[in-house]
Design a protein around this nucleic acid. Structure first.
Lengths: 361, 361
DNA sequence: TTGTATGCGTTATCAT
DNA sequence: ATGATAACGCATACAA
């Protein structure tokens, strides 16, 4: 036995030169805590992952040691050993739009309660950037993903399926979508706005929307307007269907262009969102156009100022933070192996205010 | 020596039976790519980390194999082996405020160009949540951190220093701060607004700001106002120093309360931001108060609508996305070991518009 | 309840 | 330029 001991140390000595030194990152690791607490590494791990399986006294010793050494588990090590990253991802077009920011906010809060970190990616409305972001997130080992809209390269969804990462398409909801959707029906919402105006007697419309390219939500909105008008034998004249950046400036320019046009003037303008509608209202003020006497205007999103403007803006409200929460819950359910529903529809609610009224004609 | 070998093999033999099978997670790993490309794992790794050290032909074979197997490096594995996480963190009060959202946006973009993923945490203005978030991020192995403001528990900065994580305090800039700051001088900015009003002859002021508790930026703003007034022998009456949530509603309520007060009415109201100022303007409209004839109003942030309101709002503009970019650059420099400056000041620029005018008294 | 010994997927060191 | 293999920090199956 003696020899054995001698030999073992000998063995250790023999190895040492060949074996590389520990890379020594200098940081405190689980092993240090185990030593200090006088327990095995497994026990330390259990204290943080299966506390019930550890006796109170030992747990306290370990926690004390961890505190003294200022240690907490390293996420990369955990992820590697457990093959669970505790990371989820969300890809939105841009944070500069409040509706997406609040969606992220709602999702982050919901995930946080379950110890899941949300990683954010912005595509800037570029499908290729979205694809890159998804790949980066898969590399990070995201356990679940949310992505705004469904107008993305097929590779995006292929990759998600290939890696068996549960995902949800947010902000847009569409019957018959191949994806789990959490959001509202953009088409139906804009059909409702259009019907509201038709009900007020309007027959001549203009439409000012954000760029439709690579944006299924805006495309659906335009489709909803078209469908509602068609039902009444109406259509938007091509020269009154304007597309531009989501801004007050675009709204202003649009109204000016429409008013300078030689054709029959519209009596109602449907805007893709409140920012654009705001611009239209401001330009109308400058041009001396009476709202809603001469022209009705609608927005979308119900920004805080929408009800404060004079005239107040008729628009639609969507609880985007709720979309985020629901999406997070949906994904958590999927991770828990819950028999998941296909999605969740959130209602967009029409807020009729002073910017819409009976058609003058 | 013989014994030694016996012992060694004995030792090894003793191990083998105990050894469990590979846990097999089913996913494609670097080893698979190496096999397919007919190279070693080290070579595959090099292709992605030190491409110059690999011959063209080999690199192409590896890339081909990776493509065919749909493989990309696992981030947790990388992080563990390289002790670099390629993650940076930012902690903001809330995403619901555009100024922070755009800061995140700017930072994310800047980090992305260097392959660094930004992880976001929201403190909801709660110091304890901020501390928890920082800890969570350290566990994630963040390589750098940005945090809005400096009113945080000392443990926050202690932890950051202990783990040698370079960090920057953003949004606020203050001479003599112990931290690297990237932002603007809140105090100086509000002193400037105040001087603008004093220059217009105002002597009676009201102030409506966001909650000052745990918020060094707002505290600095109030201090700036105070200091400027003091220089002219002036002060805000306590009943005209109002504190409340950042909203149109608070602005409205504040003006109503001030106007109903029995004391001498102020001729100027300084608001903590544009939201509050917006509420004041709307309420003034309802109360029939002439702006700026009877009352001058100022905001902060220069929201897109600020210049569109009637009257347009005098306010200050700060490029918050630029703050994000600069913070990212500062942190990247620190990671690169660049001799770092202490911080970076961004200017807040006064936008004089129609809501401020000569004092009626 | 607690300890032992691997393995998680990659990088880094050393050797060739 | 390329290969072999030991870390990296932790979790877990299994043994005790």
């Amino acid at each position: 036995m003696n020899v054995a001991f001698i030999f073992m140390s000998d063995f250790a000595a023999a190895r040492t030169p060949t074996s590389r030194a520990r890379r020594n990152t200098g940081r405190t690791v689980l092993t240090d805590v185990a030593k200090r607490a006088g327990v095995s590494t497994a026990t330390v791990s259990r204290v943080y992952n299966e506390p019930d399986k550890v006796s109170d006294s030992v747990r306290q010793r370990v926690e004390q040691a961890a505190l003294e050494l200022n240690w907490f588990p390293n996420a990369a090590g955990r992820a590697l050993a457990s093959t669970r990253s505790h990371i989820a991802g969300i890809i939105i077009p841009t944070l500069d739009d409040q509706v997406f920011a609040s969606q992220v906010s709602g999702m982050q809060a919901a995930f946080a309660t379950r110890g899941i970190t949300l990683v954010l990616g912005c595509s800037n409305y570029d499908p290729q950037q979205a694809l890159l972001q998804v790949r980066a997130m898969l590399a990070r080992g995201v356990e679940a993903m949310a992505i705004v809209g469904e107008a993305h390269p097929e590779e995006v969804f292929d990759a998600l399926r290939l890696y068996r990462v549960p995902y949800a398409v947010t902000y847009a909801y569409r019957e018959g979508s191949p994806h789990d959707c959490i959001g509202f029906d953009n088409r139906a919402a804009f059909a409702e706005i259009t019907e509201h105006l038709i009900g007020l007697g309007h027959r001549a419309f203009a439409v000012c929307v954000q760029p439709t390219r690579d944006n299924d939500r805006v495309q659906a909105r335009v489709a909803g307007i078209r469908a509602a008008l068609e039902r009444h034998g109406l259509a938007v004249r091509p020269e009154y269907l304007l597309e531009g950046e989501s801004s007050i400036g675009f709204g202003r320019r649009s109204l000016r262009a429409i008013w300078q046009s030689t054709g029959e003037r519209p009596t109602a303008i449907i805007c893709g969102n409140d920012h654009i509608a705001l611009g239209v209202l401001r330009e109308a003020d400058d041009l001396g156009i009476d709202i809603p006497g001469e022209l009705s205007v609608t927005g979308f999103d119900d920004l805080a100022i929408a009800s404060e403007l004079r005239p107040s803006l008729t628009t639609m409200r969507v609880d985007t933070a709720e979309i985020g929460r629901l999406a997070a819950q949906h994904l958590l359910d999927a991770l828990d192996g819950a028999p998941s529903r296909r999605g969740h529809e959130v209602r967009a609610v029409l807020q009729v205010r002073a910017s819409t009224g009976p058609s003058p004609r």
